[in-house]
Design a protein around this nucleic acid. Structure first.
Lengths: 334, 334
DNA sequence: GTGAAAGCGCTAACAA
DNA sequence: TTGTTAGCGCTTTCAC
């Protein structure tokens, strides 16, 4: 371990507190002493022990990022944004993955109430159970900002995109391409973000006048093999959809796999549009029409809001809405 | 913040040390007292303040993961593996991104020598500067495990794949597909992992008997636009390669972009094989032949080795080699 | 079997 | 301007 303040004090014949103040550039300390201390500290590569400071000040300098997974391109970009802001602010980022497991999420979060982190950024995991732990977290005095997958039951600071509108536009897009039987690929587990997208989707359908029974909602889970089976059977049936909205990236990729396996042509047999942030959407076979969220900016924004409320406690919860963008590519071309 | 040991002691009319020992399940404490303490602690949801323990024991319970980026599928899978092991061990994972910036990497690492983390997992960033900071880090008493992008000058524990052999096989693969002008897409910045792959590539060429001037090494950088320009000019030239080895995922995607833009057919005009961990390689246009590293397992292995050396200090540096797998897809089919 | 006390490294009120 | 001291919450010797 590095040198301590105590050691510096001894070496320089000063009191510990003098050194501490000098390092903190306190007005109480003479320029001369400060210079001596700084010089020596630099020379010895002094860095404060983070845990001693944390203990004393009640701040750790760490923030937590709690996510379902990191291999989704949305989340990895969001981390990028978060990490950037954190580095600028001198904070350290602890990453926790829930893998959509609510009980794991709960036990992760419980750890936070005892000082390991000063604030939490979170995208909640899908799951059926009542999220008491989120209530607890928000009731604690540690600031939390939700992003993307928020939980509206509790009033918190949220960073989201225009999901309802995007779901609406996605369906509209497919309808404009003459699709007759639309399917919305949902994700099991009560995510508000999914249901907003779905409601937008449904609104477009009801406006279209085509009656509902032609359309379908397919609820997929966390098990890829299961999903592929479910999709295959749906896509082999008489009522195969000719237009599909993927509510998250993963399910869109599963549709691609299914169509490849069944030798269905995208976009001829099935048109596909998906909520996705994939940088390489344009390189897919065929290139994928996406509703792309500003993932990096959402991460940055969420982190910025978190730091703001760390600076001055007691900020009012607010909800920031960033816009997603529909980018048409070959998977929905006529 | 939660309740403290002191508070428990007061509430239960015990000494602080008694409570501490009881919670530590010390043999000195009577079963009865332990029971009382445990019960009360559970009821009050007591969790030790991590910084107080850290300060006292000299261990933080945190590990650092230092990576170039998180949006590469190799790294995100590796994080997955690391995080899994860490969660099992009760450790917390701090993520730091260098964005291939050596000086940023250096300043990140410097922070570690003062107790914030107990150990470091690292994949070094590409860069020209002499990595003194890595020397320093390895000289410090904090355990470090390098994975994938290691730095062989210093004897450390490493987790790598069979890069030389894979580079060799990649070139062999292209040669077996009748490619005549091979190109190796390198990454600027002296990464050993890249040069191993390149040396394997070159060995295959020299064995093939085809003379070297037909082949090329294209060195790409961190700026995507620059790279695309460089690739476009290369691919428009007379000496356009008809077989390409992408040394990392990103450059392979840039080749795809370039070919799409120039309307070159993969695999007819150019065959492409790349080091990549993309789950959706099979969904690309065309599906991409890959050399796939066991990213998740490498992360797990690296973390496991780190925890092992945290448990008992002074372990000998070792190098674990995991095997990559060549998966042929359409991008190299004849 | 329990408690008192020192101290991890740092900060901050107070004294000199 | 500098130094003394107490204490953040916890662990760990050592005494009772």
């Amino acid at each position: 371990m590095g040198i301590t303040i105590k050691q510096i004090a001894a070496d320089l014949n000063l009191a510990v507190s003098t050194v501490s103040k000098a390092l903190g550039d306190s007005y109480e300390i003479s320029a001369e002493t400060k210079a001596r201390v700084f010089e020596y500290a630099t020379k010895m590569d002094y860095k404060p022990n983070p845990y001693a400071s944390s203990l004393k000040r009640g701040r750790s300098g760490n923030i937590a990022v709690v996510l379902p997974e990191v291999s989704d391109s949305f989340f990895s970009s969001a981390i990028d944004g978060i990490e950037k802001v954190a580095q600028e602010k001198g904070y350290h980022v602890m990453v926790y993955l829930t893998h959509e497991d609510v009980s794991r999420e709960a036990s992760i979060i419980r750890e936070f109430r005892h000082g390991r982190v000063d604030g939490v950024l979170m995208s909640v995991s899908a799951g059926e159970k009542k999220p008491d732990h989120l209530q607890d977290l928000s009731a604690s005095d540690i600031p939390v900002v939700f992003f993307d997958r928020v939980y509206e039951e509790i009033q918190m600071t949220n960073v989201v995109t225009n999901d309802f509108e995007s779901g609406y536009l996605a369906a509209k897009h497919l309808l404009s391409k003459k699709c007759k039987r639309l399917a919305f690929l949902s994700l099991e587990g009560n995510l508000e973000i999914i249901s907003h997208r779905q409601k937008g989707f449904e609104k477009a359908l009801s406006e279209s006048g085509i009656e509902g029974r032609e359309h379908s909602i397919i609820v997929l889970g966390n098990d890829e093999q299961e999903n592929l089976k479910k999709l295959a059977s749906k896509f082999k049936s008489k009522t195969r959809p000719d237009g599909v909205v993927g509510s998250v990236e993963k399910v869109a990729m599963q549709v691609y796999s299914t169509c490849h396996a069944l030798k269905l042509s995208i976009p001829k047999d099935v048109k596909v549009i998906a909520f996705s942030h994939l940088a390489i959407a344009s390189l897919l076979n065929p290139s994928l029409t996406t509703i792309t969220q500003p993932a990096f900016d959402m991460g940055k924004m969420a982190a910025t809001l978190l730091f703001k409320s760390l600076d001055k406690k007691g900020m009012k919860p607010e909800t920031i809405v960033l816009k997603s963008e529909l980018i048409e590519r070959d998977s929905t071309r006529m």
